[in-house]
Amino acid sequence: MKYSIMVNEGPYTHQASDTALHFCKAALDAGYEIFRVFFYHDGVNNGTRYTVPPQDDRNIQKEWSKLAEAHEIDLVICIAAAQRRGIMDADEAKRQGLDGDNIAPGFRISGLGQLIEGGIIADRQLVFGD
């Protein structure tokens, strides 16, 4: 079973990203594949490495990065949504004349086509949002 996941909300304000993480871990434990996680709307805010929650709280961004590294999951941030909200990789920051990037390890920025492609390739598409 191959899954494509869409996360539509940022960390901390909504539970969506937490639920998506728990779901992905449980799916991997069951031996299923997470083909791609696509971050859209405020969901792009899951992918900034400048997230510094208090020490007694979970670090959602790091959880995603860790999961991606351990299981080679493709974490894709929508470029149009990211540009609106200030999430940049090095190339994009340079292109926009900005003084730095903030994308977290394991995430990459790409287009909405990746979401549609995920829906086509995966057996199941799930949406976590508000």
Partner: peptide, 20 residues
């Protein structure tokens, strides 16, 4: 159900539809 039950439910059905 727990999260693994959630996963099994998605596998058992053909599609998933979120009501946000």
């Amino acid at each position: 159900v727990d999260y693994s039950g959630f996963v099994e439910l998605t596998a058992k059905h053909d599609t998933c539809q979120s009501w946000l």
